[in-house]
Computed example of a mutant assay.
Amino acid sequence: MTSDPQTVFAQAQQDVQALPRKPGNDVMLKLYALYKQGSAGDAGSNRPGGFDFVGAAKYDAWNALRGKSPEEAQREYVELVKSLQAGS
């Protein structure tokens, strides 16, 4: 297994799609936020409004990671996926 962080992050993105069961909404939001922070950096300033409750929840989860380095977010994402694979 390679230890290149980008390769490990990309593999974790594939692994999460192959989980035997879909994680709960809280975990899915955390995965989304860590993925976005790890791939795009801090959230923009345009929070979805109106009746876009899902979009607003995703934005809020991502925005809560503001200031976390993409590398740290990628590491946390990989660790979370590994814990889901282990069933914890």
Rank of each mutant, 00 (worst) to 15 (best):
M1V: 06
T2V: 06
D4K: 08
D4E: 09
D4H: 07
P5K: 05
P5M: 09
P5N: 13
Q6M: 08
T7C: 07
T7Q: 15
F9W: 12
A10V: 03
A12G: 06
Q13N: 12
Q14Y: 08
Q14R: 10
D15L: 02
V16P: 07
Q17S: 08
Q17C: 09
A18Y: 11
P20F: 06
R21N: 00
R21Q: 02
R21D: 01
K22E: 08
K22P: 11
P23G: 10
G24A: 06
N25P: 10
N25Q: 07
N25C: 11
V27F: 13
V27A: 15
V27C: 13
V27N: 05
M28D: 02
M28I: 13
L29P: 08
L29C: 04
L29E: 01
K30L: 13
K30N: 10
L31F: 09
L31W: 11
L31M: 04
Y32V: 04
Y32F: 00
A33T: 15
A33R: 14
L34C: 09
Y35V: 05
K36E: 01
K36V: 04
Q37T: 14
G38N: 08
S39T: 04
A40I: 09
A40R: 12
A40H: 14
G41A: 04
G41C: 01
G41K: 00
G41T: 03
G41I: 00
D42T: 00
D42K: 03
G44D: 08
N46Y: 11
N46Q: 13
P48D: 07
P48E: 08
G49M: 10
G49S: 02
G49I: 09
G50P: 03
G50S: 02
G50T: 04
G50W: 02
G50C: 00
F51Q: 12
F51H: 06
F51D: 07
D52F: 14
D52Q: 13
V54C: 06
V54P: 12
V54H: 14
V54G: 14
A56N: 12
A56H: 11
A56D: 09
A57D: 05
A57P: 05
A57N: 05
K58V: 15
K58C: 14
D60N: 05
D60I: 02
A61L: 03
A61Y: 11
A64W: 13
R66N: 07
G67T: 03
G67E: 04
K68R: 06
S69M: 11
P70Q: 15
E71D: 03
E72F: 00
E72S: 01
Q74C: 15
Q74A: 10
R75D: 08
E76F: 08
Y77V: 01
E79G: 01
V81G: 01
V81H: 05
K82E: 11
K82I: 09
K82R: 15
K82W: 01
L84D: 00
Q85T: 15
Q85H: 10
Q85R: 13
A86G: 15
G87T: 03
